[in-house]
Amino acid sequence: MSIFGFFTRTRTAPVARERLQLLIAHERALSGKSDLAAILQEEILAVIAKHIAIDREKVKVKLDRDGTISTLEIDIEMPEAVVLKN
């Protein structure tokens, strides 16, 4: 550990929070609970995956809920050479 380690301690709790938020949105969608944004996310990914090999690790999903409006932002990194299935 560097001598500055004490001052630059890694804050791990924000990572936990972010991982949980994504995971739980996903699991709620699977259990059929009312989270429309998460259901859309799953179905859109499934449709894209039919045609293009996508790496789920490289898919960034952002769910925002603000009062009455939900926004769903899906950022999919395409492989360099798009691999078309069949």
């Binding site: 791990t12 709790a13 924000p14 929070r17």
Partner: peptide
């Protein structure tokens, strides 16, 4: 407070 553990607000929000 040191960012090593989820805060009350984090758990409540989730």
């Amino acid at each position: 407070a040191r960012g090593e553990m989820l805060k009350v607000e984090d758990v409540l929000e989730i």
